[in-house]
Every structure is written in structure tokens, then in C-alpha cells.
Design a binder for these strands. Structure first.
Lengths: 123, 123
DNA sequence: ATGCAACATCGACCGTCATCGATAAAGGAG
DNA sequence: CTCCTTTATCGATGACGGTCGATGTTGCAT
């Protein structure tokens, strides 16, 4: 998959009127972030060296059962916010910074005035 | 100090381990953004001059019933993403850019990996 | 006063989701 | 092979949330 650039994920909210499908896609991403347990898991993983963590490291601190943690990690993985890597018996989840950045971009202020000035080609 | 100005809203996800309270608060904000209808309403309002819109302007384009639109606007208002102003018979909702910016900040990358390492002994 | 328009609230229905125990699947270690 | 550990999946349950019709509330006009 052509990883690279910020991602094909999110149409910006404030730049133009969102279509139903764009809105649905963006909402899915936000829904993945709309749970306290998942946000804590993200922060726990981010706090680890390399921004990656083994599942067995997460069940304790989160205070959630192992099935629940596994479920949340799957949701975050499906949303593209985490990537999964199996190493022997253990599974490591790693934060995907580009995806987080894409979500931030979706909330970016309107580009309007600056862009028109920068262009400067119309009259 | 342009950095710490933003808002009292959101503890950053990637900077440190989130406590349960911080996570719950942040999750509430994301939950407000986790619905296609609300995202579209935000974009519709943002597209209007002054980033504000009358409710009567929103019911049509959104394709939602008036009670549903009213409900969504209340959720966004409670989340601090919209502010409400009554003008005569009409009610105008306006986007709160600072709040959007605060959400973006909550997803900002870690301050600096090297700074943390350079500090040496912490746990 | 009456009538009308804009918005909010209420009540109910129904789908979605978070949670956990039980169980399955995959991979070492002996 | 058997046993144990790690993680994922299944199934059930309880709670939350989006939706809309009906109704209430507010404000303007006549």
C-alpha cells in the first residue's frame, strides 16, 4: 500500500461541505477515539519506547479484561491508528503517527484567505 | 507563550499516560465528533459567512428532521464546539475555533523524544 | 387577545457498542 | 507428543445513543 502522504482518510471538516460518505468515514475514525479505554491504551503505547507495546503490557495498567483490551486494539487497528506486528508468541501494537496527523488535519482551520493571497494568479 | 493558551479542555494523548478522568473527558469531546450528521452540520456552519448559521438553514441540507438537528446542535454546544446565540425568533450557532484547535492539540505528536531521553533517569 | 413560525424537549423505538467469561487458535518449552 | 502462555473470537447482556412524531415554549405579527 502506498503509505507515504498524510493519508486518504479524512476530508477536512471546515473547508467545504461534507458529503454523506465523507462524513461517515470521518465519523468512524472519531468513533475509534471516542472511548476512554482506547484513549488510555493509545497513551500507554505512546509512552513506551518506539511508541509500541506488547498486549501483555497493556492489560494490567488499563484495568480492563484481556478480551476487552484485544477488542479495543482491534478497533484502533481497523481505524488505522495502530499497526499490528506479531513477534513469536507476542503481539506488538505500534502507533501510526501519520494517521493521527491526518485526523488533526481534518480539524484544521479554513485555508481560505491565505491561499488566495499565495496564489495571486487571479484577477 | 502561544502554546499553553489553547484551552482547559484536553489532555494530550501522546505526551503522557492518561488518567481515567482525563480520558473520559477527552472521549466525550471525540464522541461529539463521532457522528456523520454532526460532522456535516459543522461543515455546513463553517461554510457560512462568519462561520455561523441559523438552525432553519441547517434542517434542509442535512436531510434530518428538525428535532434531530436540534439534538445534534445541543450535543455540539455542550461539547463547546458551537456557541449559541438567540436573535429574535431565530437561533444562530457559531463555530468555536479555539475548541477545535484544542482537540487538534490533544492529538499533537510527543513534545520531543530526545528531550525525554536526554533527561536521563526517570521511570 | 389569536395565530403563526422557529426551536427545544419529551417519549419511545431500535440499532450499536462496551464489557466480560468461556473457549478457540497459535506458538514456545520440555 | 503434552502442557502452558499469549492473543483472538464467540456469545450474552446491559447500557448508551440516533432518530422521529408529538408536544411544549418562545417571540413576532396582526
Amino acid at each position: 500500500m502506498a503509505t507515504a502522504k498524510i493519508s486518504p482518510c479524512c476530508s477536512p471538516v471546515l473547508h467545504a461541505r461534507l458529503g454523506k460518505d465523507d462524513a461517515a468515514e470521518l465519523a468512524t475514525t472519531f468513533r475509534a477515539l471516542a472511548d476512554p479505554g482506547r484513549l488510555r491504551l493509545l497513551s500507554f503505547i505512546a509512552a513506551q519506547p518506539g511508541a509500541e507495546a506488547c498486549v501483555c503490557y497493556l492489560t494490567g495498567p488499563s484495568g480492563l479484561s484481556q478480551p476487552t483490551v484485544s477488542h479495543h486494539l482491534k478497533v484502533l487497528n481497523d481505524a488505522g491508528l495502530l499497526e499490528r506486528e506479531k513477534r513469536g508468541t507476542w503481539v506488538y501494537y505500534r502507533i501510526v503517527p501519520a494517521r493521527l496527523e491526518a485526523v488533526r488535519e481534518a480539524l484544521a482551520p479554513v485555508p481560505s484567505e491565505k491561499k488566495r493571497v499565495a496564489r495571486g494568479h487571479e484577477r
